[in-house]
Write a protein that binds this DNA or RNA. Structure first.
Lengths: 165, 165
DNA sequence: GGTTTATGTCAGCCTTGTTGACTTTCCAAG
DNA sequence: CTTGGAAAGTCAACAAGGCTGACATAAACC
């Protein structure tokens, strides 16, 4: 009856099993964001700025609308963040050539540096967790997370997944 | 060189591998909170209320101080949430018998009902993700999450893990 | 009796989400 | 060619939920 110990017969999932996963997700997410949050704490920026920098770095020349869809916030919410990043010279907004309504977003040297330092901190923790859990665990981790996403998010995740940087 | 395809030799973790994990975590957490958020959207409550209800349900008679430590917020922040839950008759605060300074928190019938409906929604998604990913993946998922936590959070997670409800 | 601890509260601030209203630009149907 | 609608972006105002700081009360501890 005690599947939790063996990990072999989890086709029958007790509420207890599932609840542990929920709590793990809660506590782990705190750790996940802790290092970048600490770095950003000193500056005038927050987690929203980190997310914008991450995905602009990830998809250079992305439009505001693309970024909106990936981040899952309103354009007004994103705009406030972008405005300060642009004002501080971390992000450059270039008017689209084909469609002048669009703004294409790029990191400046300064922006790329901050993104790098945030990313380094977060990657270090993720890497340490991967090492601690072992190679097999990493596959399972990503499989469960992927299955947990909403359909729209999964599509975005997968299309990002293809692109290497 | 392409360990990502085989998943066998992940002792050498490329930045790319790790970055995918980071993005998976970001997108998955949105899915993780989506269902309770939707339910709470209709009421005057938010994610903070959900978290309080969850952990009061999980550790009945917990004190305010305990809850503070688990949630990782300030007492002013928690107090705002608790005040509304108590005012609306979802949570009951009982003066401690041994130590009359303490308040022991309990869910009322009404509070337990709301907690149940939020929990049902979140468990359903987590259960579906577990099933989709398969039994082996679940172990890896929890192992990586646990390794990602801060030390304090891991201790709290583990002491909760023992307790069955 | 003085100090520490647990809790609660008030005030004020910040980040980051929201909606609503607006401008500029583009495109397509007439 | 014009005009009306859709799309991209911006500005303003508001709400949730974090935060700090200061302070009050009661109980416990020494």
């Amino acid at each position: 009856m005690d599947q939790s110990k063996t990990g072999e017969t989890l086709l029958f999932l007790t509420d207890d099993q599932v609840r542990k996963g929920i709590e793990a997700m809660f506590f782990a997410y705190r750790g996940f964001t802790a290092d970048p949050d600490r770095i950003l704490g000193g500056m005038d920026y927050g987690r929203a700025h980190h997310r914008a920098l991450h995905f602009i770095h990830r998809s250079p020349a992305t439009t505001v609308n693309n970024l909106l869809a990936v981040l899952g916030v309103t354009k007004q919410s994103l705009n406030r963040v972008l405005r300060s990043l642009i004002a501080d010279g971390l992000v450059e907004s270039r008017v689209g050539q084909a469609d002048k309504r669009e703004r294409h977003l790029h990191l400046t040297k300064k922006g790329a540096e901050l993104e790098r330092s945030l990313s380094d901190a977060q990657r270090a923790r993720m890497r340490a967790a991967y090492r601690a859990a072992g190679p097999g665990a990493v596959q399972g981790f990503r499989q469960v997370l992927e299955a947990m996403m909403d359909d729209g998010a999964r599509r975005q995740y997968q299309s990002l997944k293809e692109t290497s940087i």
